[in-house]
Design a protein around this nucleic acid. Structure first.
Lengths: 296, 296
DNA sequence: CTGAAAGCGCTTACAG
DNA sequence: CTGAAAGCGCTTACAG
């Protein structure tokens, strides 16, 4: 029937259907920085899962701009969409969670979360704990944490995983603050004193790449002179020189979980919001020196 | 007025407005592979420009699946959107252009184009011409072209720029086919005979990264033993070891041009479709050996 | 179970 | 120039 109608040039009008039924089968997705491969991969996971559930994804890239995020959110509200998946831009006021609640728009946070409400993200604390424990096993004592701002829950979680593991080993945690940027991290590491830390737990892979670069520039080599561990396992991690040991959190899996959590919110508005914390695993390559040690 | 209404809880309903006016102020964007940093950056450029023009971007990632592309396109038609921006998935039948035309949906292609119709993309031919000329200037004679499938216009254009420049220098062009993938390219280059090409013009940066890796694995070094030039200038290009000499085509600028071309199509449906071919420039870093030469 | 009518919230064309 | 009414194409609730 619809087949035949289509042949005659008929096209189903979703906007009319939406107006009458109030269901758009569209989800708004707010990405904090699409040019970051980690978030790009995550976005692909979200879209895949929503597509399977019969939803279409309306994506907007906020480029870490709170203003742009606000505008897109209002736009989603007017559209309207059936739900919003949000990776909050840096500097998002915590009050946003309550505002979204008062709007009555089902929503879930991804990776960067609010204290409460539907959420899907990696186990940040377990990730840096695994990394730190691995370095301790390799015999390191002067282990520093490179990067991270500590103001947001992601940084806080990763710092905690590291700092608590250090404390448990009766060692003093050390924070080397720097921007989440290859160039900045490289600068920081390049200027590190010779008798400084022998191992670095990095906030994420970008920072770790910078560390690799900074070591190289100062004539040192990751894995041999200083152990480096990243966080995320972006695709490039395996291809860097040396290949990066890092904490894998599978962005695509997080994306799928986020879609699930939001859809649960939509279908069960009265139920307690789901919070899915996804496991982190350590991927051992060369930058931590473990393979080098084995070879000797 | 609207301010006051908003305070009372009123939310403008775009779906109603759309139904009456037929204008959605929404553009559908079909991305062939969002996890490729080049396309991610391009997407950000499109969105930025459309946002400035008062349009919202509805993005869908096809992951190079023609089936998914078809479904999203039909969805966009039903939605409806005011126009579609498409980076065709590999294997898209050329007939799609006519079909879109018959649907009456304004559209433009990005990067990968059809023979006719609105389009924005890099000057592929000029890009590889610049790369090849640079290698010739550095004294190379055995220059090969690595990667690219030649079935699509992008590959064809890049191959032509290389092959014609070689022919002009009375040299025989050589094609080393491989998948557009770091691992595949690395394998290919690793197995290259010692008396093989002394320089490689690569289909894109991913392939070039693979070449760098393959050389490293076989104990050779890009820039010193074999010159390597990429295409795209993705963000990582400057940070690889050695830093990659590559053809810059500024994905963000292409994205902005694509938005412009589509909006022109929407506002001037009777006018000839615009085709914007954006300039390519050569960014000289270390992988081509030019800096090494200077230092000696 | 089937079919005609009402109505979603806007914009637009028309009457006053 | 202002204001009330019609209508966009669906879905839904209701009458037959």
């Amino acid at each position: 029937m619809r087949e035949a109608a289509a042949r005659l040039g008929y096209v189903y009008d979703r906007s009319a259907a939406l107006m009458r039924s109030g269901k758009s089968h569209t989800i708004g997705l707010l990405v904090c920085e699409i040019t970051n491969p980690f978030y790009a991969e995550l976005t692909a996971g979200v879209e895949e899962a929503l597509d399977d559930a019969g939803y279409v994804t309306m994506m907007a890239n906020t480029s870490e701009s709170v203003t742009r995020q606000r505008r897109m959110l209002e736009r989603f509200r007017e559209q309207p969409v059936d739900g919003v998946l949000i990776m909050p831009a840096t500097g998002t006021p915590p009050g946003l969670a309550n505002e979204l609640l008062s709007w009555g728009v089902p929503h879930a946070t991804v990776v960067r979360g609010f204290r409460r409400g539907a959420h899907a993200g990696p186990d940040n604390r377990a990730g840096t704990r695994l990394a730190t424990e691995h370095l301790l096993t390799l015999g390191h004592r002067r282990i520093a944490f490179l990067g991270g701002a500590a103001k947001n829950p992601v940084s806080a979680g990763r710092w905690e995983g590291y700092a608590r593991t250090m404390a448990k080993a009766v060692l003093v945690p050390e924070h080397l603050p720097c921007q989440t940027d290859i160039g900045q991290a490289a600068q920081m590491v390049q200027e590190l004193p010779l008798r400084g830390p022998t191992a670095l737990v990095c906030f994420n892979d970008s920072v770790a790449f910078g560390a690799l670069l900074g070591l190289q520039r100062s004539g040192r080599m990751a894995g041999r002179d200083v152990a480096v561990i990243g966080f995320d396992d972006v695709r490039e991690a395996a291809f860097w020189y040396p290949p990066l040991t890092t904490v894998r959190v599978a962005p695509r899996v997080i994306g799928q979980a986020a879609a699930r959590v939001l859809l649960h919110r939509i279908t069960n508005p009265e139920a307690e919001p789901l919070r899915e914390i996804l496991p982190a695993t350590l991927v051992i390559r060369d930058s931590c020196g473990a393979n080098l040690r084995k070879a000797v």
